[in-house]
Design a protein around this nucleic acid. Structure first.
Length: 560
RNA sequence: CGGGGCGUAGCGCAGCUUGGUAGCGCGCCUGCUUUGGGAGCAGGAGGUCCCGGGUUCAAAUCCCGGCGCCCCGACCA
């Protein structure tokens, strides 16, 4: 029973002044969420209904693949986090109790869940397992932003799989992919599953689920049959026209010209016919000179993977003696290993000459300098995968899944005895989904100038019944009757029985965005027809008053 | 962490330059009118002007320090 006359739905005509993202503005205006502090948000009753509907979908699907729901604590002793090494993470909230004991607020739960599994799983007969929870996560984000999109506290569904071996992990990973695909299909989002970087989680593979929208913080590269986070995307570069080859490099005077555009313009070659030099200091390897085409950009995530270690840009005093002066760096004669991007095809390029005011023309990789090859550039729109051009879109990361391997099981001594009595580390996977981000992405993807247009599966209510007319009127009596009927048919109805003008009720209904609006007014009585508005597209329909409730239910079932 | 901006009624804002009664729109309360697209009239309530210190006869306003919040970038298991 939800009557707006007694329901806390604090809608606002104006968005908060500091809101930028559509989902931020609309979710606040529609009375779904309210801010308490930086990156700290309260879910109001109608907003929490959305959240809980998303949670219910996730729960059904994770249960369906054999997940067992449990609850791990947010407040945790610091010791396990020291053991895993993650105590060092800046985003981890750390605190002390009154005795001075070190505690942390969990940002994820590999430490806790692995600790328990290490205690209770002994035999291969206890495996495989999928354990999961919905629990608040705490992260000291450097910059919370965009309403509920990036917050310091948020509910996450995190599941963990435990297997005897990589084959088992592959099975559980595939099960989660199935479940997640269904979750996002059911939630009504436009989404992609993309390859992603394993990041600080380590492990051997990961995917992200991305919901494209303007407020997204990530970028995805998409082509038919291909989807990857821009951080890891690979594609075939667009070809570039190279100048005619020379028997050997020729020095050219380029005084004061240090950028690719300036030099290419002066020499009359395409920017892609130049090689951009990017000196880095790689952990354990020292100075490395990375070369990409002049029209390409170095991708730091891919470079880190290629180097197999962390790195940082080298400072002039670290490379000027071994290579050359900033602005005129090149591979010829460089006293450092050279990493050449795979998009650099054979031919003659323009590079820095490693002395001030000069470049080299006609430099050929291999002939003029030795190199290692690696794919270290960021793909560009128009690059191709399998001959088909890619496009790049902004997207919200709504879920992330990882093959963890044995990193945590080894750290926490989570082993099992196999058939031969040998102790082996449990092979783990972890799988996260943020319900709040699903809600925000749905708003971003469906909103129009009137408000939100929720997908049916996650709307706060199935439909909004708007009653026009004054207290004691015949139309109000009819509305009451319909409210009871529709509710009786199993629909979740929000009933606007407030003493307000029609304009305000319609505006609020469209702002809140339930998939269907049913209007009861004087016209309903005189015309004998009930007016319906499908929120998506604001299309009006009408059904005969006779048998109207059943007709409403049937229409509702067809909505997106 | 670098750059930019903002804190005055529930929301959106003006006032600050040039110190002197704290204001506007929306919202809220009461009454009457109005009920198919944010309605009208009348009356009313609501403020530690972010906090602390300083200057001054007097501080929302000037000075110093702090806190909070937003945006861009870096970062983001």
């Amino acid at each position: 029973m939800t009557r707006l006359s007694s329901y806390l739905l604090p809608t606002e005509k104006q968005a908060p002044a500091d809101a930028e993202a559509i989902s931020h503005k609309l979710m606040v205006r529609a009375g779904l969420v309210r801010q308490l502090g930086a990156g700290v948000w309260t879910w109001m009753p109608a907003g929490w209904r959305v959240h809980q509907r998303i949670v219910a979908i996730i729960r059904e699907e994770i249960d369906a693949i054999g997940g067992q729901e449990m609850l791990l604590p947010v407040l945790q002793p610091a010791d396990p986090w020291r053991r895993s090494g993650r105590i060092e993470i800046d985003e981890l909230f750390k605190l002390q109790d009154r005795k001075g004991t070190e505690l942390v607020l969990a940002m994820t739960n590999e430490e806790a869940v692995t600790t328990h599994v290490a205690q209770v799983v002994r035999s291969y007969r206890d495996l495989p397992l999928i354990l999961y929870q919905f629990q608040v996560k705490e992260r000291d984000e450097p910059r919370p932003r965009a309403g509920i999109l990036r917050t310091r506290e948020f509910v996450m569904k995190d599941s963990y799989s435990f297997d005897r071996d990589d084959e088992g992990l592959a099975v559980n990973y595939a099960k989660h992919i199935e479940a997640y695909d269904r979750i996002f299909d059911r939630s009504g989002l436009e989404w992609y599953r993309v390859e992603s970087d394993v990041g600080m989680m380590g492990g051997s593979g990961s995917h992200e689920y991305m919901a494209p929208c303007a407020a997204g913080e990530d970028e995805v590269a998409l082509a038919p049959g291909y989807a990857a986070n821009l951080e890891v995307a690979s594609a075939d570069a667009q070809p570039v026209e190279l100048p005619a080859p020379l028997p050997e490099p020729r020095e050219v005077h380029t005084a004061g010209l240090t950028t690719v555009e300036e030099v290419a313009g002066r020499l009359g070659v395409q920017p892609g016919a130049m090689l951009k030099a990017y000196p880095v200091i790689a952990g354990g390897r020292g100075l490395v000179l990375v070369l990409v085409r002049g029209d390409h950009r170095v991708n730091e995530v891919k470079l880190r993977t290629a180097l197999g270690t962390d790195f940082r840009p080298a400072q002039p005093d670290e490379f000027s003696r071994k290579i050359g002066p900033a602005g005129y760096l090149g591979p010829v004669g460089a006293n450092a290993p050279i990493l050449l991007d795979t998009a650099v095809t054979d031919g003659g390029y323009v590079t820095g000459a490693n002395r001030p005011d000069f470049h080299l023309y006609g430099v050929e990789p291999g002939r003029d300098f030795p190199f290692e090859r690696a794919d270290v550039r960021t793909v560009e729109p128009g690059d191709t995968v399998g001959g088909r051009p890619i496009r790049i879109e902004k997207a919200i990361e709504v879920a992330n899944i990882f093959k963890l391997g044995t990193r945590y099981s080894e750290a926490f001594g989570a082993t099992f005895l196999d058939e031969n009595g040998g102790a082996r580390p449990i092979v783990m996977g972890c799988y996260g989904i943020g319900p709040a981000r699903i809600a925000a992405a749905a708003v971003e993807q469906t909103a129009d100038e009137h408000g939100i247009a929720w997908p049916r599966a996650i709307a706060p209510f199935d439909l909004e019944l708007v009653a026009l007319g004054r207290a004691g009127s015949e139309e109000l009596a009819l509305a009451e009757r319909l409210y009871a009927e529709l509710t009786g048919l199993g629909l979740d109805v929000v009933y606007d029985d407030r003493d307000l003008g029609p304009g305000q009720k319609f505006a609020d209904a469209e702002l809140l965005g339930c998939p269907l609006r049913v209007t009861v007014g004087r016209r309903t009585l005189t015309g004998g027809e009930l007016e319906l508005q499908v929120r998506r597209g604001r299309e009006s329909r009408s059904v005969p008053l006779e048998g109207a409730s059943q007709a409403v239910l049937e229409l509702w079932r067809t909505l997106p």
